[in-house]
Structures are given as C-alpha cells and as structure tokens.
Design a protein around this nucleic acid. Structure first.
Lengths: 160, 160
DNA sequence: GAGATAATTTGCAATTCGTGCGAACAAACA
DNA sequence: TGTTTGTTCGCACGAATTGCAAATTATCTC
C-alpha cells in the first residue's frame, strides 16, 4: 500500500476528501502485516480517536480496496481481512496460533488448472495451512489445542 | 464422497441413525459437482421431501464434513460450499458465470512458501480465477457483466 | 411386534459480519 | 466566510449459520 502522504494525494485526485478518520486509518494500515479485520482496526482506531464509527472504518477500507490500494482476503473464517500488501504474494496460515504470513511462491504464475478446457486464468491464489515455526517449537513441550474455524475470529496475535 | 450405501454403514458405525432426511442428502450429494451451498441443497431437498428443515441440511452437511466425507470450501462469497470430492484437488472459478470447477494442479504439493522460516505445511490450496471457455466464447459476441462479490450467492449454473 | 431409549428433526430465536439510509457535519474551493 | 458536496455515524436491516428445547422417530431389547 502507498504511504499515507501518497494516499492523501490519491484521494484528492479521486475527488475525495481527506478527513482525520481516513488519515488515521491510512496510518494504521501503513506497514501493517497483521492482516487485520475491520473490527480489529476499529478497535485500534477507537483507541486513538474515540467516537470513530465502525461504519466509517468499513467504508474507508472498501474505498481503499476499490482503488487497488488494499487487498481483501477471505480465508473462510467468516470475516474479511485486509492486506496493505498489494504485491503479488500468497499466504501461510498457522493452524495453531492463527497467524497469517505473506509468502512468495516461485513459479506460482506458471501453475495451470488441469481438467478444464480453455479456462482463461486471471489470477492465482495459493494458501498454505500448517504450523508455524514457533508453534511447532512450543508444541514439542506442551501440546496446545488447534484453533477451530470460528466466525468470530479477530486478528490473531502469535503469543510467542 | 462415498456412495449412499457406504455412508449408511459409516453412519451406523458411528452410532448415528439412518434417517430418511440423511439418506436424501446423501443421494443429492452423490456425484454432485456443482459445489452447492447449504441453501441450494435445501431447495433441492425440499422438492423431494417437503417439510425437511434447513437446520437438518446444515446439520447433516456438518456431520459429513466432520467425518471427512465432504470438503467445505469458502471462496469469500460469504457462504460455505460443499464438495463431495475429497480427493486432492483445487478449484477454478469463472468470474463471469460463477461456475466452480474441480481441477488438478501438477506438482502443487511441491510448492513451498518463501518468506517464512520453518513453516510446516499441512495443506496447500490453489484457486484459479478467470473466465471459463464458454463465457469467453460468448463474451466475444455480446459482452456480459462480471459477477460481483455478493453475500447471497447460490449455486451458479452456467447459462450456456 | 410392542415398548424403552437415545439420537434426530424442527422451528424459532439469537449471533455475527457487513451494508443501506438519512440527518448532521465538515472538507475544499470560490 | 459561505457554499457545495462528500463524509461520518448510528441504527435498522439482511444473509448465513448455530443454539436450544420440544416433539419425533430410528433402533434395540424382549
């Protein structure tokens, strides 16, 4: 995602106004690698700007996604996550702590779907599920329960 | 997914009862390649067994998934889809008609996430998005609108 | 077959995520 | 400073899915 300053210019260029709420969200998203949900961002934003509305957070996130400054990702948890990283990348999800990590996949664009004729591929998404290094390490001492698919998933914070 | 007869035995083996509702759902799922939603299955089931409850459809689908007879897939539409194909496979989604096709990907299991150290991969999912052959063909004559992400997505039926 | 028992089915309420809407508000520009 | 138009915000609503309790019914036993 672009820097808050560039986003400000982009917004103006789109005939959009630069409000304090938007600027706050820009800054919260900048260099954010936690793949937050709207709700998680709202929680953080409320801390810095009491009174900001969840509605506004959703709205701004959707705008950013529409302008291609943000990627939305859906991992089947029932919530949409937002990823400021709009480069070509994929994700690895830890089944234990829930952490989502941006990863690269060599020759991913060379993958082809077999079993369909004439399918014109626009985009390829790869998702790795497994156990991250720190969970793997700690499970060897005291096995911890796997995370279960839940609709009320917030931004996972690896507790290591 | 196993045949209805085998599923019946499996259910009994699990101490579960074999009800007409369950048997109906088994048959509707058998050889079903449409990746239906619970609601879509409910609609079909209601046709053959008026009065069956949506709640029961959900319940049975969840049981089957729990027993590993069914795969659940979430493509970010806001609905869970069910796939009786539990073999190792991936999906191709047409952005125009919404059709979901099971596909194979050569050497998919050889893919490795770069950018994370020591991540232990359990499962790899690949999703292709693009335009299927028939939509590609028809769009050359009369361009049709792209499907938009909607929360009320039912089982797509390619209209070609 | 009849009865006992425990699993099922069902409808309805409740929950969660996300959006539509309208009124009050505030950037941006003249 | 005033006007214009885009924004914010709270609330109600919609869709998908699950919790719960009462009424049913598959199964097993005798």
């Amino acid at each position: 995602m672009n820097s808050p300053a560039v986003l400000a210019a982009t917004y103006r260029a789109h005939g959009r106004k630069l409000t304090p709420q938007r600027q706050l969200i820009f800054s919260l998203l900048h260099d954010n690698t936690t793949h937050p949900t709207a709700d998680a961002l709202y929680a953080t934003a409320s801390h810095k700007m009491p009174g900001i509305s969840l509605r506004t957070v959703y709205q701004t996130l959707n705008e950013l996604a529409e302008m291609g400054e943000l990627q939305t990702i859906d991992l089947g948890e029932g919530v949409t996550r937002f990823d400021p990283n709009v480069d070509d990348h994929h994700h690895a999800i830890c089944n234990v702590c829930g952490a989502i990590t941006d990863v690269h996949v060599e020759r991913a664009s060379a993958l082809r779907p077999k079993g369909v004729d004439g399918f014109n591929v626009d985009d390829i998404g790869v998702v790795f599920r497994g156990v991250c290094a720190s969970c793997e390490a700690s499970s060897k001492r005291s096995p911890s329960p796997q995370v279960k698919k839940s609709k009320s998933a917030s931004t996972p914070t690896p507790k290591h």
